[in-house]
Computed example of a mutant assay.
Amino acid sequence: MFDRIALHTLAADACGLPTDGLVPAANYSRFKYGDGQVSMTFGRALADRFNEIVDPRPGERIFVTSSGYGAVPPAARSLVAPFVARMRSLAPSVQLQPLRVHRLGVSPGDYAAMDLEARAQAVGAKSMHVDPRIDVAGARVVALDDIRVTGTHELAMDGCLNEAGASWIDHLYVIDAHAAAGRPTLESDLNEVAASSVADLLAIADSPRFVPNARLAKRIVSSSAHEQEAFLRGVPVSVRAWLLDAAERDGLAHVPAYATGLRRLRLVSARLDRAAATA
């Protein structure tokens, strides 16, 4: 059993997100690439909506998770902390606990640009699991995610959470775009509204509470050598180190869509290191 709640619902004929309101197009795009300030706004708003609609019972045991992931968290993971903090202020008697859903493997490309068949192959029915040492049996689970388009990821989450024994699953989205699922580039277009250039990405990286994520890592890995160098020159050394580490931990070297870009990124980073050492 489950409920589905969203901050914004796109109609089938919608051209995109509004420029203002609760989920402005630019803010959503910045959130997808690591703007932690926007994550806080969305996470708190989801908590407000959940508390208003669901009205959890005093003492109820609730786990809060994001979309499943392997090594490097997606943007959706940055919603968990502000959601939990807000819920603890709204419903202090509820027993809230963050939960991680583990995902096997990594998408063979940009999931946002995939059609239904490719998404089903990327996120199979058995691709998600919960650590068996965590007792989810009988508890409610709130699954936070950025967008619902085809519902493929939601089905995979339901499968693993039901298998873990969850009594109820609430899916909370920043955007519900299921009505427009027939437009294959919709999600990708929404992601790029305020992140179409290296300058845009550098502005996000320079924002307060910047939280780099898997989407940013894949985007930089997939960029040209010129774009990679511009990004690496513009961010702190700590972000550069995070980027290379994230690519390694997510196994991008073994994914054909990213392998060449990662080799290029390593060369660019090494060249910048040599230049800094001789300056």
Rank of each mutant, 00 (worst) to 15 (best):
L116A: 14
E117T: 13
R119K: 15
A120V: 12
Q121M: 14
Q121L: 15
V123A: 06
V123F: 02
S127G: 14
R133T: 14
R133L: 14
R133A: 15
R133F: 12
D135H: 11
V142H: 01
V142F: 00
A143K: 00
L144M: 09
L144K: 02
D145Y: 02
D145V: 02
V149A: 08
T150N: 10
G151N: 06
L155K: 13
L155F: 10
A156I: 00
D158K: 01
L161S: 05
E163R: 12
G165Y: 09
A166N: 07
S167N: 08
S167P: 04
W168S: 06
I169S: 00
I169G: 01
D170W: 02
H171I: 06
H171C: 05
L172N: 00
V174F: 02
V174R: 03
V174Q: 01
A177N: 04
A179I: 03
A179Q: 11
A180I: 08
A180N: 06
A181H: 10
A181P: 03
G182H: 09
G182V: 07
L186V: 05
S188F: 12
N191S: 13
N191I: 05
V193A: 10
V193H: 08
A195N: 07
A199H: 13
L201H: 02
L201Q: 03
R215Y: 12
L216V: 08
K218N: 12
S222N: 12
S223W: 04
A225N: 11
H226V: 13
R233I: 07
V235T: 11
V237W: 09
S238M: 12
